[in-house]
Write a protein that binds this DNA or RNA. Structure first.
Lengths: 329, 329
DNA sequence: TTGTATGCGTTATCAG
DNA sequence: CTGATAACGCATACAA
């Protein structure tokens, strides 16, 4: 394995000089810089990230903390987009990222989790899909030991930023479009799990809309479950003229149920996942650009790691209809 | 962060002694061992994995090399299952695994990829979904620098094992079941991409079956694409009485096309992905237990890393029908 | 502008 | 059985 030492020897300079070139320090002559770069290229040298993080107290590595939910593959799609967005941006920012799945740390306490991340040279973490129940993660955030960006949860402090779309507005928007198109008056709203931070926000959105439009609103807890959405739809849809869902997966469950019941009700979802193209009927939904959210999350984390304070970052959403013809490839 | 130095000081012993206790070296007195362990426990010390891999040349970490395919979310589901299986087993085997996505290494040459993995302290790699076109990966395997397990590609040498189901037999089985149930005689076979190792094997399976059953076989390259499967079905299905597909995603494309054409032909797929539940009609398919394949892959890698030679590992498959009712949750 | 020396947290070697 | 001490590959304050 070619090391910085080999490069230094080959280029006839000191190790520290090579290091400076690699890290784009200003005080290196153009000549030496070129010489070193030439050797780096020729020897195919890639700096040892492990040694680098060990050595410097600087920009450490970044961990993507992903929830592995085996049961619903909708979340697979979302997770993958989160990952790919982050990786893409990491390349650009020259950050070393690793992915950590919650299952790996699920039975650790805060101290252990902290040690685990520290032992991996992690300085910053992006947490995806945190719920109110994740006690350990809350403590981790409060500890201030890491720079953290939380996606879709309103945690902000000195070393923590949050990033998300405006869930209330998005829910308001998509529902408004749907009920306006269909002149609905009696809304069945299938909410998300009460543990989810976004659940309450989305609920505020639909409530505001129903107040404004003087619609009758029936709220049921669909727990982000397709099956539960199906059952609730079977039970309550007849007395409503529209089904608004807090997630696409529930929207699909509701739509399939309506088809089986052989009655029509407009349905709208939330997330914009590809699976919507397989639901059988088109629906309005909120498209969240998960890859982009993740990219911006990484940029925000980069900001935090360079000493800035935590803050709230908002991302735009858009309304779409997902058709089978559009998603097939 | 508490380090080995702190433990040593607190326990009143040398750093090296602590290290020996941590790594279960034999030549340490029971007394010191207990004392050190007590301090380790009390201080909540967790060894720094980064420093450890830097220092030692021993059993390194394991990398899961995953293909990130943004366009088809069927592969998301499969990748996630691979990952979760590997992580689960890694915990059990006490291996440190990291996930690497092909996009991170796509424009590196062998030397760079080698350095990259080495720089991460990687000793073993599991490669998922390798194609004949992945020149760099082929060289990586030939180099013998890493212990490697390749999933679904027949690469075996001193330090490389392959693991997969018997694709020829599986294709044979699922097609046989389908044509027997429906008394078919003219098979349209939508094959996978020619770059895929499994493509040829599956093709052998269907050919053998058609020989035995004296069926007319029409083979078309569906390239594992749902859209292409749709087009090919539109074009050729009328002259066949059955559509056998080398992947579920193509089976779904074919089925949707048949529904749109308003003709019936039995269709069968391959993989057993959950998306099959949303295809509209039930189909036979081969269920590959991706999580289990990954688990066994990790066990095999562990074997390689402890000095054993590469070999071919076979995994069982089963025939299933995926119903919406079964996959919803 | 360049080089020297020291340290990061471990493991490994070799005296004691 | 135990403890110095030299690597491991790199970053960086400091000296030249």
């Amino acid at each position: 394995m070619v090391s910085i030492k080999d490069v230094a020897k080959e280029a006839g300079v000191a190790i520290s000089t090579v290091s400076k070139v690699l890290n784009n320090y200003p005080n290196v002559s153009e000549e030496t810089r070129n010489k070193v770069n030439e050797v780096v290229e020729r020897l195919g040298f890639v700096p040892n990230a492990v040694a680098a993080t060990l050595s410097s107290k600087r920009t450490g590595r970044v961990a993507l903390l992903i929830k592995l939910n085996l049961h619903t593959q909708a979340s697979d799609e979302i997770s993958m987009q989160y990952i790919s967005g982050a990786i893409h941006k990491a390349k650009e920012l020259q950050l070393d990222v690793i992915t950590v799945f919650t299952s790996m740390i699920e039975d650790m306490d805060v101290a252990e989790v902290t040690s685990y991340f520290a032992s991996q040279g992690i300085k910053g973490i992006i947490i995806y899909g945190m719920t109110t129940k994740d006690k350990v993660l809350h403590k981790l955030i409060d500890s201030g030991n890491f720079k953290i960006v939380v996606v879709d949860a309103p945690m902000v402090n000195e070393s923590t930023s949050s990033i998300s779309i405006d869930h209330a507005k998005a829910q308001y928007d998509v529902a408004k479009k749907t009920i306006t198109e269909n002149k609905c008056k009696k809304i069945l709203y299938l909410a998300g799990d009460e543990d989810g931070y976004v659940t309450e926000e989305r609920l505020q959105g639909i409530k505001k809309l129903c107040d404004e439009k003087k619609c009758k609103l029936t709220v049921r807890n669909g727990k982000f479950s397709e099956l539960r959405a199906r059952e609730l739809t079977m039970k309550y849809a007849k007395n409503s003229d529209c089904v608004v869902c807090a997630s696409d997966i529930m929207a699909i469950g509701a739509m399939k149920a309506l088809i089986d019941m052989d009655i029509f009700r407009p349905v709208c979802g939330f997330d914009g996942i590809i699976l919507m193209g397989y639901a059988g009927k088109q629906m309005n939904t909120v498209r969240q650009d998960f890859a982009k959210i993740s990219e911006e999350g990484l940029m925000e984390l980069n900001r935090l790691m360079s000493g800035e304070k935590g803050r709230k970052v908002a991302v735009k959403h858009e309304l779409v209809r997902i058709k089978y013809e559009d998603i097939i490839c």
